[in-house]
Amino acid sequence: MIDLHTVEEFNQAIDSDKPTVVVWSANWCPDCVYLNPLLPAIEAANPDFQFVHMDRDENLDLAIEQEILGIPSLLTFQNGKETGRFVSKLRKTPEEIQEFLNKVKEKL
């Protein structure tokens, strides 16, 4: 997973032809901390996607622009357009994330 730090890096990542999963999180968020060790396996199981990470606190203006109201949030993009959004007030499981990614793949 690639850590992004600027709006420019974000825009470059989401403009890719390859579907991109943007994982929004923060280091103080318990559900984000829970999800972190699960992400490498999810990424390995989904080679059709590029995975990137944005720290919500480091990029608060962009998070507001992207309507990131809760974390962790997973947004998918391709060629600069949002193709999916997985936001839930409950802790996300690997199975739920995989189901989300499968639905996004079906639409591509």
Rank of each mutant, 00 (worst) to 15 (best):
S88A: 08
I2A: 09
V21D: 03
E58Y: 06
C29A: 06
S88C: 07
V21I: 15
C29T: 07
V33L: 13
A45L: 02
E43A: 12
D55Y: 01
L39V: 14
I64D: 11
Q66R: 11
A26W: 11
F51E: 02
V104A: 02
P47N: 05
F86L: 12
S25R: 13
V7I: 12
D57T: 10
Q12E: 15
P94Q: 10
F77Y: 15
I14W: 08
F86N: 04
D57K: 10
G84K: 00
Q66G: 04
V21F: 01
K81N: 02
S73A: 14
R91Q: 13
I2K: 14
C32S: 15
L69R: 14
E58A: 13
D17S: 11
F86V: 01
G70F: 06
P19C: 04
N102T: 05
E9F: 04
Q98R: 03
I2C: 00
V7M: 04
M54F: 11
C32N: 05
F77L: 10
C32P: 03
L69N: 05
E9K: 01
F51C: 11
L39G: 14
K105V: 00
D3G: 03
P37H: 11
A41T: 11
A44R: 13
V52Q: 00
D48T: 10
T76M: 07
T83Q: 09
E95T: 12
D31E: 09
A26S: 15
N46K: 00
Q78V: 10
I71L: 06
L35N: 04
L4G: 09
E96C: 04
L101W: 09
E9Y: 11
L39S: 12
M1R: 10
F49D: 04
Q98M: 08
I71S: 09
P72N: 06
E65G: 02
C29E: 02
K89F: 09
M54V: 12
A45W: 07
E67M: 13
P94D: 07
K103W: 03
L90V: 11
V21W: 06
N59T: 13
L4T: 15
T6S: 15
